[in-house]
Nucleic acid binder design. Sequence first.
DNA 1: ATTAATCTATTTGTCAAACCTTTTAATCTT
DNA 2: AAGATTAAAAGGTTTGACAAATAGATTAAT
Lengths: 259, 259
Amino acid sequence: MALGSGLQTGLQTGLQTGEIVRDGLSRQVADQLRAAIRDGQLKVDDRLPNEEDLAKHFGVSRPTIREALKILAAQNLIRSRRGPAGGTFVSRPDPQGLGEAIADAATLLVGTGDIDVEEMLTARAETEAVCCRLAAAARTEEDLAALRAEVALQRDESLRDEDFCASDVRFHRALVQATHNQPLKLMMYAVIESFIPVTNMLIYREHERRRSVDLHDQITEAIAAGEGARAAELMGRHLEGMRDLLNATLDRRAAGRTG
Amino acid sequence: MALGSGLQTGLQTGLQTGEIVRDGLSRQVADQLRAAIRDGQLKVDDRLPNEEDLAKHFGVSRPTIREALKILAAQNLIRSRRGPAGGTFVSRPDPQGLGEAIADAATLLVGTGDIDVEEMLTARAETEAVCCRLAAAARTEEDLAALRAEVALQRDESLRDEDFCASDVRFHRALVQATHNQPLKLMMYAVIESFIPVTNMLIYREHERRRSVDLHDQITEAIAAGEGARAAELMGRHLEGMRDLLNATLDRRAAGRTG
DNA sequence: ATTAATCTATTTGTCAAACCTTTTAATCTT
DNA sequence: AAGATTAAAAGGTTTGACAAATAGATTAAT
């Protein structure tokens, strides 16, 4: 779309009195462009006018436009390329990118202690149980192969702890993938990319790994057999074990601090 | 923290050869500041140096710094205030803000048809069932009051459709709140702020509203009685009904288009 | 004639130096 | 002591310029 057609500007400049300006011009420009994208005025892969024209259109300077574009780019709504055939384009909304953003934010929340570990494990247990049930019904042979590959990898006792944890994340990612449910996948990104690493960082030691692998194995085979309820039950047991381990670890740390 | 202490700059300028520059300077500055926040070098409510000093520190111009700050502000990592006691500060990570970002993106995904409505309803059914079970165990009297208030509001048949839908969203929000599980709340934002409105937009008509209210009512009372399984089952039935309605609506639209 | 190298125009990326607006706090006045 | 004034600090915005990248046209060499 040419943009010039329907898009109203109507920015609130500092000169107007009494109005509550919801922040600066760049924010307002970004909001308007975002709205245009959301409402379909600007479709995926549409090219926006160049920055100078945008500046003219909105009646602001180019740096202001650029700040606005950076905001939208940070939200993965647009992308820019230089050159004659370059410009700024509307991005296809990307579950992957969104997931990373969620994971980033969730990691921060966990890091600042705003998220209680008990609650986190409960959330994991419940939502991953859901994944187990759905995966048992929808999994393909490829999904099973992916799950089994991680289990096999995890059986290697010479694997370094960090590689084990990485494999653990991939296992759970594969589990979600096996549900073939996009919206669920979106929601689970926070769990997979953030909660799981946090959990793992706290507890893994050598002799506990074997227990985790065994449960991963059993969960995989339950899903292979289409036994969703059993897979969900195993996952619950898996996380129950983690909860105990975690509490023991936290107790030990607390004791070390006071003693 | 004073920032000047430990933060390395090491930007990849255009002059260096061979290196793959992952985009512009503002992006790199934003990445470094983000890393400093993530790693705890910059703590919540810490004040960053002013823009001019940041520009000097990173060896870039002020507009470039501003673009970087806009990126971080767009991700709710920092906030800025003007004036002598103003400046740029590290924000407390905010589930609310994160939720809105998730909702925005999810809305786009649904809008572009990248999310299948069937899958969405499945995801809703499963995750909201989880909420029902946990809410039944953890709900307080205030939670119940909030749920009942929405049910009461929804019984008013003179309520406009959009107000009904808004109340519906609040009902589900209150349901999640009643679980008292922060991580789950985080995950459910995508559902509440995006999937629910999308669902509602498609289907609500007057005589269907009564059925929804009745189920909301029964779900609330099941949670009040601590009967999580029953609440979950009712929620499943609620969404099953929506699925039928939705399919009927879509069929009708398809027929209208071809006929 | 075909291919390779070069030029050119376009567009984003960056910089520099101002000026404007908002906000706080110190100072002055009453 | 209370209120009004004012100066300084910080972010917000503008202007104007130049740098870098790149697609496409042009030109030179084979």
